[in-house]
Amino acid sequence: MDIEAHYRRYGPMVLRRCRALLKNESKAAEAMQETFVKILSAKSLKDQAPSSFLYRVATNVCLNIIRSERLAIFQNSPELSEIARTIDPTSGWLSRNIITQMFSRQKELNAYIAVLFYLDEMTLEEVSQETGLSVSGVRKRLKQIQLRATRYKEI
């Protein structure tokens, strides 16, 4: 894989995404590189529309930074706060344990759905199209996230 060519094509998009989520230039630059490293480590840059895949990985790398560094980025959204508090979307990336990978992928997908819906203000249909889930599937996962956020607020 030609790293330089991929960075030239997709790096700016990934950096803008990281800047928007992390609100910090040095952390965003770090997250941008980490996004490419994760993709190359997993040998998984998909041929069709890599932009979707990179955007998703970048989002989850940023969520992981927000969670691990306890950054107060999502104070105004209980759902995103819940996601940032609990999910480590990247923990299973390099795992060779298939169960760990599957579990991690599910959590990662929920986190991504929450960010697309609550932060990026995409419609249910757009989130559905982006994630490959049905609209009802997206709605169901969002309800689960809302429920968890409500419970967390009550604790």
Binding site: E4, Y7, R8, L15, Q33, V37
Partner: peptide, 23 residues
């Protein structure tokens, strides 16, 4: 602006270094 601020050859090198450490 991003290519000027983060030159592709340099960033690619840094990514390759990180990848090496990770692997």
């Amino acid at each position: 602006q991003i290519w000027a601020e983060y030159p592709p050859d340099m960033v690619a090198l840094q990514i390759a270094q990180r990848l090496r450490k990770r692997r």
